[in-house]
Design a protein around this nucleic acid. Structure first.
Length: 556
RNA sequence: GCGGAUAUGGUGAAGUGGUAUCAUAGGAGGUUUCCAACCUUUUGCCGGGGGUUCGACUCCCCCUAUCCGCACCA
């Protein structure tokens, strides 16, 4: 069984290469690890999957599409935590030049070296001075952070600023929050989607398209008010049993509706995106029996996340994570706020304005200014903290620790009633993130059917019509007597329709041409024969059933 | 990054210290050709770089890529 599966995987990748779907990139120069081409057929496939994905989310009505640069300044990814999180700290042995990870060689000397900062590690390395695992010497170079992101310089020469190729598309959507907020008339919830390239300089790309250095990702950021319980209508998924691997209950079969009701899915909006993700994947042709949701363990989730579910799809490489749906809290917007000092918030109006009685003190600028000079600002702050019953003169302690005497001439009473109509808050984010390459791989894997009609070796790629890269093949039964010309006319007229792709093929026997079309998953083949010349009808042949029907050319 | 295996037409394979064989696919022509039919003809390959040798696809070294473990990781 394993051998048969192995053979299948090789035949599948061979076919993908032979037919121009997925190929190793730059092969004539020896190739490059972790980089793939989508070929003349695959390019269109990728595009259709991207478009289906965009359409699926934009149809929600409150989701907009963004396109942000892949080149990203250092500061953005520093704020997001990627500069720190995506790093390994490396040190070189000065004797044998062997590179080692600092946290690995310090493992015997610290409970959790992974948690240390660079300078802590450097300190510990100097104190312990461990032996090189390779040559036994103890002479280490300074620690350098080796990041899994691709470095680049934005600009030339001295004006160049450090940057990276983005490791995910999400950050651009967070940094665009203000624009999104304005566009959506300052009302939550709303979302933004983006499909595009991401880059990670993986130590070891493996397993074909499963781990790449440049990959296609599609991410959605859905901004919500944490204090509003969104109403999601789960009724359409109520009877749909899902394969769930939950953190507390293990493997269970349950509808998403029930899992949300029981609190297994901790947030209804996460549940809603899980259900809609299921719809998307099955709509484009992922086999629902080879799909499951796996909840992250608490220690596996990023510290800021409150719930995270992966969609795993079963294929030739086993269960592979293809989508992650995470409740990220306010982490991202807050991180960019902290780093920039800009406000990335939404406003929440109170049902009833809050009436606040203010009764206290402030300074009188005319007297306090000359009296306290440079300290006047700090004195004002301190005085505004004083109770309304305070009596002057009094000693106040300033921020810098100094103590000054404030007397009644420096202050004035403040008594007023304020009505506060609302407040600003940092929205929370639910993020479904899709690995498009991995999804495409599984679409192909699930669609690849080697079962010939009579036990013969015959390949059909049973791709869903919505993503099939070629819509029609047009064949003249013979390329003579005018059949070729008629077939070319039909081909041209199909191609001129928006979004329709047709292939004209007149070489080889008709059976061979059907076989070629089946192998790249063309749903419908159109054949022009002698009868076509007389009555303007053609044969339509359906890929999956093989059934033929005659229809008039005008009905195509 | 460590260990192991591999690298020959587009694809899948065979083989040799003296430039390569087979199947399949592709092009052209023929055949009333509807599920990889047939006939003729044609195109196309030793991953890259060094070394040994009169001569290297073959032997040696390095590199690159692929696959499998380990490690790492959306």
């Amino acid at each position: 069984m394993a051998d048969a599966e192995e053979g299948r995987l090789e035949r599948l990748t061979g076919m993908l290469k032979r037919r121009g779907i997925i190929l190793p990139a730059f092969e004539i120069h020896g190739g490059a690890k972790g980089l793939y081409d989508f070929g003349p057929v695959g390019g269109r496939l990728r595009n259709k999957v991207n478009q289906a994905w965009l359409n699926h989310w934009i149809s929600m009505g409150n989701i907009v599409e963004l396109s942000c640069p892949t080149i990203t300044p250092y500061a953005v990814l520093e704020a997001s935590g990627h500069v720190g999180e995506f790093s390994d700290f490396m040190t070189n042995c000065n004797s044998c030049e062997e590179a080692s990870r600092a946290d690995t060689i310090l493992e015997p000397h610290h409970a959790n070296p992974d948690s240390l900062t660079k300078s802590d590690l450097q300190q510990l390395l100097g104190d312990v001075n461990p032996q090189c695992p390779s040559c036994g010497d103890s002479d280490w170079s300074p620690i350098v952070a080796q990041n899994l992101m691709f470095n680049t310089t934005i600009g030339a020469g001295k004006s160049g600023r450090p940057g990276f190729l983005r490791p995910e598309t999400a950050q651009g959507m967070f940094t665009s929050f203000s624009s999104l907020y304005r566009h959506n008339r300052e009302r939550l919830p709303f979302g933004a989607v983006q499909v595009g390239k991401g880059y990670r300089n993986e130590i070891s790309p493996r397993q074909g398209m499963i781990r790449l250095r440049e990959f296609n990702m599609a991410e959605l950021e859905y901004f919500i008010d944490p204090e509003v319980d969104l109403e999601h209508d789960f009724s359409q998924w109520a009877s749909l049993q899902m394969n769930l691997l939950s953190e507390s209950d293990g493997e269970i079969i349950m509808s998403i509706t029930d899992a949300v009701a029981k609190g297994i899915i901790r947030h209804p909006t996460v549940g809603m995106f899980m259900a809609k993700t299921f719809d998307f994947l099955t709509n484009i042709g992922i086999d629902s029996s080879k799909l499951r949701f796996r909840q992250h363990q608490s220690d596996e989730m990023a510290h800021y996340a409150s719930d995270c579910w992966d969609v795993e799809i079963l294929g030739s490489y086993g269960w592979v994570e293809c989508v992650g749906i995470a409740h990220r809290g306010c982490y991202d917007l807050e991180a960019h706020e902290k780093a920039t000092g800009k406000t990335l918030r939404a406003r929440r109006e109170f049902a009833q304005p809050k009436i606040v009685e203010i009764d206290g003190w402030t300074t009188d600028g005319a007297t306090a200014g000359p009296a306290f000079r440079a300290l006047a600002g700090a004195v004002k702050k301190a005085v505004e903290q004083l109770s309304s019953t305070c009596e002057f003169p009094t000693q106040v302690t300033l921020e810098n620790g100094e103590s000054v005497t404030v007397d009644s001439a420096h202050v004035k009473r403040v008594q007023r009633t304020e009505s506060i109509s609302g407040e600003w808050y940092i929205p929370h984010v639910v993020e479904p993130a899709f690995g498009i390459d991995r999804i495409i791989w599984h679409l192909l894997d699930h669609a690849y059917d080697e079962s010939g009609k009579d036990g013969e070796e015959y390949v059909t790629l049973r791709l869903n019509e919505s993503i099939a890269p070629v819509d029609y093949c047009v064949f003249p039964l013979f390329e003579k007597d005018g059949m070729g010309e008629l077939a070319r006319d039909i081909h041209r007229s199909l191609c001129s329709k928006f979004g329709t792709v047709s292939i004209y093929d007149a070489s080889g026997s008709i059976g061979r041409r059907y076989a070629r079309a089946d192998e790249i998953g063309v749903p419908i083949c159109i054949t022009v024969d002698h009868q076509s010349l007389q009555d303007n009808t053609v044969t339509l042949r359906d890929r999956d059933s093989g059934k033929q029907s005659r229809i008039s050319i005008s009905e195509l």
